[in-house]
Write a protein that binds this DNA or RNA. Sequence first.
DNA 1: TAGATTGTTAATCGATTAACAATC
DNA 2: TAGATTGTTAATCGATTAACAATC
Lengths: 228, 228
Amino acid sequence: MTNETVSISLATFQRMPRYLKFLKEKQTEGQKYISSVAIADALLLNAALVKKDLSQAIISEGKPKVGYSVSELICDIEEFLGYNNTKDAVLVGAGKLGQALMEYKGFESYGLNIIAGFDVREELIGKEISGKKILHADKLASMIKKLDVKMAILTIPQDSAQQTTDTLIASGIKAIWNFSSCHITVPDNVALKNENMAASLAILSSQLKEILKIEAIQEKTAKKGAQS
Amino acid sequence: MTNETVSISLATFQRMPRYLKFLKEKQTEGQKYISSVAIADALLLNAALVKKDLSQAIISEGKPKVGYSVSELICDIEEFLGYNNTKDAVLVGAGKLGQALMEYKGFESYGLNIIAGFDVREELIGKEISGKKILHADKLASMIKKLDVKMAILTIPQDSAQQTTDTLIASGIKAIWNFSSCHITVPDNVALKNENMAASLAILSSQLKEILKIEAIQEKTAKKGAQS
DNA sequence: TAGATTGTTAATCGATTAACAATC
DNA sequence: TAGATTGTTAATCGATTAACAATC
């Protein structure tokens, strides 16, 4: 009963923060109710998709003819995304990227609290970033156990990623957000999200290539047209 | 003819860097040929999927019974992903995240060359990160035009993202890699890739929640079992 | 009431997987 | 040759979209 499978698609999840952002804008504008069609139009989505997505996230129901209550939608989506229940996390690898994430204010509103950064580089130990200390990686395992931390952010630059991952999991970490360029593997009972920069860049590059190609063709055609 | 539509799925693109990484490992081990089955097994994918993906990226063909030439595959995938044809990019917003990307060595091998960072904060101007200067945002438009830069990396922290985007596009930028938390819109003839942290975190959080829930149930069941 | 909008069922579309003839 | 592996066609699966009865 309680053990229902979460078969909500990743695509649905990806859209939720966009709904949330748009709804908050509407709330600021003083709007009380909104229809799936209005949301779909604004975000360039299909209205049926919006209805289906929302039906998976919300407890409250929309009212026929009126639409959804903006404030209830916001509450439900924030609950759905776990923004209300703050999760502690450790950050492993406090280089530039790690420090950028440590000082990023936005995470608070997403329900993420980085409790400390960890590194092996002596010159970084003791440094404070936005009130968060950088500690020696030695203390990682004991800290995770003591504070019962379940999430780790991996911002180490190089190939020790898998080894570090294994250590983290052995200490009790159940979710890893991997910003390193290594593809790491984890057991089934650990959640993993890779920030795959190489893939992102590849997609963008290839789209750019295509755009430049089309423009070159158009230019050629335009020239031909002018000549004839 | 030349204007064939690129209908290669995003999913295929996302897998390409993984194939590449694996193939390079195999090359280092001295392996000359590899089958789709071997790749699929290693990366936990379906062999038919691997074959289909590769057929879209490669010029050379695999040999029945033998498999694909590792070195040819690597060449073709790198070409496909545009790693060989280096693209210049400007980076807008040289805070911690921006600096982290500026000093990230990996981009070179992905064919990305950040020529300079730009910011409005006086204390950052003139600073050098891995040999790349941070310049005043004033100079952005003229620099883009002068060097004919087509790609921009957006690492500005706050809400001027859309305005900055518009300026970039007006100067000739055709591809934007957006690390800001704002959802920006661009015309059809500009490529856009959002690094959506909020969405990533939401997915990870919800998976974690599910895992902890399952473990709680298992624990309860185990306790019951011990009692009876 | 008439009309807008919900929630949901059925149809469509696209991506993944299975099956298999071709081939070395 | 026999068997492994390719490239590709057909089947399956899942996500998106369209359609529509229910309802306020």
